[in-house]
Every structure is written in C-alpha cells, then in structure tokens.
C-alpha cells in the first residue's frame, strides 16, 4: 500500500440536522459551519459529530487500544474546540487540521508512555495482532516528525499533498520524511526480529 495520492476527501454537510439544542441556523457548507463554530458551540457540536469517528479511528491505529483512543479523541476535540477561533482555512480540509491535533496528542501520549516506562505494545494487552504490535513499537522509535508523517500518510485517507498542507510543509519534505521513516522502520523491525531470534 502506498500513501493515498489523488482526489481530496470532502464532507457533504448539506442541510445538516441540528443535534445540539436546535437554535442554530441551517447551513449547507462546512466552511459556514466552521465560521459559526467560532462563536457558537452548537455549530462545533455538528462538526465534532461529523469527524469524530474518523479521528477516533486514526487514534486507534496509532495507539492500538480503544479506551486510550477514546481519551485521546476527547482531548483532540476539546483542544480543537478551544482553538477553533484561531482556525484559518488554508485550503486543506478541516479534517486535516483535526488529524494534525490528533497526531500531536498521540505523540505526546507516547512520549509520556515512554517516560513513565509503560511496557511496549503487546498483542494480548492491546487486543491486537502481533504484527500490529511490532509495527507500532517500531513507529514509537521514530522521531515525532517522521512518526506524524508516516501515520498521517498511511493511516488516514489524506494524500501526500494534503499531509503537506496539514503540516504546513512542502510536499517534497513529506516524501523525503516518508522515505526516511520507512527505512528507519524496516531497520527497527529487523533489529527487533534479530533480538527476538537471539533471545530464543
């Protein structure tokens, strides 16, 4: 699998049913909703409902545990809610902004996890497969910039150009980070495999 390249994913929000209290006016574009959300919490509620599953899914792929992913998703949306007033449309989808926040939350979470010496991912603990644990442990060893790029490129539907827009970096930088991240991942997985082989 290669990171997605090509069409942008867009969200159809025409004539949304208002789910929070019902005092919000009907709107027919995500941009309108974002503008409303800067002053109206109900509008943010609609945005959150639209993107929650995608963000929680990305976080689940990052951390491998549903409960941790749920906590991180809450932190992501609360952070987005508090920062929505400063959001500027740069042409990247709104969801890309959320992915970026989610990625930062996941990076901080794994940094904290490392500092408090939580054991590495294990298949039984995380209700996960062995190969998933191997890849997640290897990803944890990457520098945060590489980790962000590789997880956004592979575990979200964003294209490399959208990842570049989301991170405010050049597309070439995304590609070079991806290539270096993949090399580092391969080496780490090989190292882990040879270590396990040696232990046996």
């Amino acid at each position: 699998m290669e990171p997605t390249t090509g069409s942008r994913h867009s969200t159809n929000v025409s004539h949304l049913a208002i789910q929070f209290g019902g005092t919000m006016t009907e709107t027919n574009s995500e941009d309108d909703l974002i503008e409303q959300a800067k002053h109206n919490p109900e509008a943010f509620g609609v945005l959150y409902r639209m993107h929650y599953t995608a963000i929680a899914g990305y976080l689940l792929r990052r951390v491998g545990d549903e409960s941790d992913a749920e906590d991180l998703a809450a932190e992501t949306f609360i952070a987005a809610f508090r920062a929505i007033g400063r959001y500027r449309n740069t042409g990247a989808p709104f969801r890309a902004w959320l992915y970026r926040i989610a990625s930062n939350k996941a990076n901080r979470w794994s940094g904290l996890r490392t500092r408090i010496a939580v054991p590495a991912y294990s298949a039984s603990e995380e209700q996960d497969t062995e190969s998933h644990s191997v890849i997640r442990n290897a990803i944890e060893t990457l520098p945060s910039k590489m980790r962000t790029v590789i997880t956004l490129a592979y575990w979200t539907p964003m294209s490399t150009s959208q990842v570049a827009e989301a991170l405010s970096i050049a597309e070439g930088t995304v590609k070079s980070r991806l290539s270096r991240a993949k090399l580092a991942l391969r080496q780490e997985i090989e190292r882990q495999a040879s270590q396990e082989g040696g232990e046996r």
């Binding site: 699998m1 919490p41 943010f44 929650y52 995608a54 792929r61 190969s131 575990w155 997985i189």
Partner: peptide, 28 residues
C-alpha cells in the same frame, strides 16, 4: 512487506461509540 504491515493497521476501523461524553459535556 512494510507496506502490507502498515496497510493491515490502516484497515482497522473505529467500532466504538460515535460520540464522546467528555466532548459533549464540554460543548454543552
């Protein structure tokens, strides 16, 4: 092989609840 490993994680979808109590509480 690495692509396949990454793709196998990418296919993991969110099957949990479609809302988050903490977020909704904050908004309310």
């Amino acid at each position: 092989q690495l692509d396949t490993m990454l793709a196998s994680i990418a296919s993991q979808d969110w099957n949990g609840p479609s809302f988050n109590q903490r977020v909704e509480q904050e908004i309310l």
